[in-house]
Design a protein around this nucleic acid. Structure first.
Lengths: 145, 145
DNA sequence: TACTTATTCTATCATTTTAATAGATTTTTA
DNA sequence: TAAAAATCTATTAAAATGATAGAATAAGTA
């Protein structure tokens, strides 16, 4: 399951992708437009920033913005930062492998084989979809001055 | 993420698939062999039974057993029963559709489009893998008398 | 019938995760 | 210095997860 956190994060990233190189966007605006609780969104954006996906400016005229072209940021990156590994079970994760507790024979574990396929399929989709790939309905909302 | 519940459930189903038409299996044995907390396993098997995947017999000589050939039970069925829909978000679920709260335009929602693909890919794998498809290492454990 | 073996049912519980809020602090600009 | 914004730290409420306890029921058998 995709958490609300990740969902909000993706919404925010798509929003910011739309405004790439058009100046910083206020958290408050983003929160209102996308119907995301402002305080919650703050934490999310901060986390995305800490992981190198966003830049920000404090003070008047500040806000958040993408630091790379939308085509260079994938949905997979965003989801991993906010929800952790894509793998359904830790023992098939490439970015955060961990041995299963009960599993004594990883090589022959059929659950592992199946979930490995799921992970591959999921990663194939999310890591090859960038913020630019998903064509987006135009916002009608004018940016606040 | 696959819950422990679903993981335990799958382990149990594979175990029972191995013993198809060889008589009922005791919860206690299954729990011990697969390192699953017995009481927890009881609930899981009951749920799988209520959903038509297992039969059971009470009293002496009783236990649990598959009521269909392993080839006719898919991993997807088991996971859906124990963990709910495969879809990462409710609005792309086929078995349990639900509108998103915030989403006002389902048709243009790019998150939805992406997660739809993920759901399809996941379902394609899990619904086409049966308990028989995953070839399994032989148990060395003799069934208790 | 009484006993034993098993599943079934109902309830409860502890822990973790999720979703969200509150308030003080820091940075920047004008 | 005042206003605007992000940043930081802490807390909280609710839900989900993982697990346990004990009584009830069913079935076979001596």
């Amino acid at each position: 399951m995709l958490s609300k956190k990740a969902k909000y994060g993706l919404k925010a990233m798509f929003y910011l992708a739309d405004r790439f190189e058009k100046g910083p966007v206020l958290i408050a605006d983003l929160a209102e437009e996308e119907h995301i609780p402002k305080k919650f969104l703050e934490l999310i954006l901060l986390e995305l920033k800490r992981n190198g996906l966003l830049h920000s400016k404090m003070g008047k005229g500040g806000g958040y913005y993408l630091n790379k072209p939308p085509a260079e940021v994938t949905v997979g990156q965003v989801v991993r930062i906010l929800d952790g590994p894509l793998a359904p079970i830790p023992c098939v994760s490439k970015t955060a492998y961990r041995k299963c507790d009960e599993c004594d024979n990883e090589r022959t574990c059929e659950i592992r084989k199946i979930m490995m396929q799921v992970r591959e399929a999921t990663a194939a989709i999310l890591d090859h979809t960038s913020l630019k790939d998903a064509p987006r309905a135009q916002f009608e909302v004018a940016r606040r001055k």
